[in-house]
């Protein structure tokens, strides 16, 4: 359990949010040209990093807006929060 700083509402408990998985997986531009391998990669394969991971969250029980988080999955420490469409503040 941890606290998440929603960029719209401020600090709230993690239980108000829902995790949306790995961030920055862009939808294929021309889906009809994708091979089965590329579809599998887009739909199912995940980095599932132990360490610093970029991920999407949604404030389900609040403003219901989506945003991005940089979080260390080995200790659940959040390093940065940034809005959808923004560049990650740390690399």
């Amino acid at each position: 359990m941890f606290i998440i700083h929603c960029p719209y509402c401020g600090e709230r408990e993690q239980s108000e949010f829902k995790a949306g998985g790995e961030a920055h997986i862009s939808r294929p531009k021309q889906p009809s040209e994708l091979s089965d391998d590329q579809w599998a990669e887009y739909l199912f394969m995940r980095k599932n990093i132990k360490g610093v991971q970029y991920e999407r969250w949604v404030h389900t029980h609040g403003c219901r807006k989506w945003f991005n988080i940089i979080r260390d999955t080995s200790n659940d420490q959040i390093q940065a929060v940034y809005k959808m469409g923004e560049k990650p503040p740390i690399k």
Partner: peptide
């Protein structure tokens, strides 16, 4: 299970 990726071997109280 919690719905977020974590390797911390502890989950949420809720």
């Amino acid at each position: 299970t919690d719905d977020y990726v974590s390797y911390s071997q502890k989950g949420s109280h809720d």
